[in-house]
Amino acid sequence: MSAHTVEHLEHTESPSDMKSQIWKTFWILLAFTIVDIGLYFALDPTMIRNWVFIILGVVKAFFIVSIFMHMKFERKFLAWMIILPMVLVIFLITLMVVEAKYVDDHVNKDSVAKPTTEEVHDTHAH
């Protein structure tokens, strides 16, 4: 037995044009970031602009995971195993948006509109 036996690892092969795919992904990420910055100055802060930013962010994440992290070339089962649990995050966001709306309506707006004795104990004392 030689001291350094060469190990053989299971892995999925990269495509032969990996280098050009890497650079293509880099230009896509760069372009989307520049679009982000452009929209930040071009549009007024509205909910629509926020959604555009979030969608661009998800698209950028897709390119990073699929090309840079090699997920596109792995087995589908692995990809789903990692991506599907992220659905729970959407669930969490939904819950928290509802809760935040409640806090906003019933704690902040109420205390501004009709000052009550409650306000004395409010966090405004900071």
């Binding site: 992220m86 995050v89 969490l92 966001i93 928290m96 948006v97 809760e99 935040a100 709306k101 806090v103 906003d104 309506d105 704690v107 902040n108 707006k109 501004v112």
Partner: peptide, 18 residues
């Protein structure tokens, strides 16, 4: 995700605080 969601929660719940 939970850190960013809590950021979103706190920020969103401050819109009526003048």
């Amino acid at each position: 995700s939970s850190l960013l969601v809590s950021y979103g929660f706190v920020r969103y719940s401050f819109s009526g605080n003048l």
